[in-house]
């Protein structure tokens, strides 16, 4: 189906889904096993892969949307739990489209609980916001003692109609909590498509995507800022890194001409960070 068919109402008729998915990883037998999986439609996941010879205890799992994207009034949630010592990388197979939501935003919530000594990486390809799309996203990350985490996400926008019609509105919130439940970081922001699409964009005239990466953990387990910014530059993004509030780790901002460069930067930072956090160079995640 072509995008214009969705925007014309076909997608709208299949709207308003309330779905909750859950993934639980636990360590056992030298592996990180997916011990609980609830993935109702439109969620779809592959089986966990052990892609890294050096660390077969790191499970990699691809998350997909089986429905062609997010639609009006959708409310999807995903809960990922890592039991003590488990290591998991959850990534997306490709970008997810947010279709014209007709004034009723699509919502997506994620809650990631990283147990003591566990490692979680969520590197999701940027959402693609179509004209008229409104999206509200919230991600909560709860870190136990000694937990490490990487979160990479972002959005790009695409006016397939060529009529200069921007997406509607983007609202996102990412919160990080420590083992005591104290708020360490809350990255909240909202913006209208009219503010970021076009030559007068508040992100700069060439911007077509925006993203962020959080590298969470103690300073000794994180890459240095100079190396991060070198990787950002190498990916062709305009970006920077700095200490996150309350010692949460490192926060990275990214702006790029397209979502592909955000993906490249996220992949580079994943590789760099796994090197510091887990002590090896991860294999390329094929998509």
């Amino acid at each position: 189906m072509k995008p214009v068919a969705y925007s014309g109402g076909v997608g709208l008729q299949a709207a308003g889904r309330r779905r909750a998915a859950e993934l639980v990883f636990a360590r056992g037998g030298g592996r990180s096993a997916l011990v609980r999986q609830i993935t109702p439609y439109p969620f779809h996941v592959t089986r966990p892969f052990a892609l890294d010879v050096e660390r077969p205890d790191l499970a990699t799992l691809y998350l997909q949307s089986a429905s062609g994207g997010l639609y009006r009034d959708d409310d999807l949630s995903l809960e990922v739990t890592l039991k003590p010592g488990a290591l998991a990388h959850v990534t997306s197979q490709a970008a997810t489209v947010v279709h014209d939501t007709g004034g009723q935003p699509a919502r997506q919530q994620m809650r990631v609980s990283v147990g003591p000594g566990a490692f979680a990486a969520l590197t999701l390809d940027p959402l693609i916001l179509f004209p008229g799309a409104e999206f509200i996203g919230r991600t909560d990350i709860h870190l136990a003692e000694g937990a490490l985490a990487i979160l990479a996400d972002g959005v790009s926008w695409h006016d397939f109609s060529g009529l200069g019609r921007p997406f509607g509105r983007l609202s996102t919130e990412t919160c990080v909590f420590d083992a005591g439940g104290n708020l360490l970081l809350a990255d909240r922001g909202s913006v209208d498509g009219t503010d970021v699409v076009g030559p007068a964009s508040i992100l700069g005239p060439e911007a077509g995507a925006v993203g962020s990466v959080l590298l969470l953990g103690p300073p000794g387990r994180l890459p240095n800022v100079a190396a991060i910014e070198e990787a950002i530059d190498g990916a062709g993004c305009f970006g920077a890194a700095g200490a996150a509030p309350n010692g949460a780790g490192i926060a990275v901002r990214l702006i790029a001409p397209n979502g592909g460069r955000i993906v490249r930067a996220a992949e580079a930072l994943f590789t760099l960070s796994v090197g510091r956090m887990l002590g090896f160079a991860p294999a390329h995640r094929r998509k």
């Binding site: 708020l183 360490l184 970081l185 809350a186 990255d187 909240r188 700095g242 200490a243 996150a244 509030p245 309350n246 926060a251 901002r253």
Partner: peptide
Amino acid sequence: EATTLAEP
């Protein structure tokens, strides 16, 4: 403090 991501 928590909502100001950029250290400077």
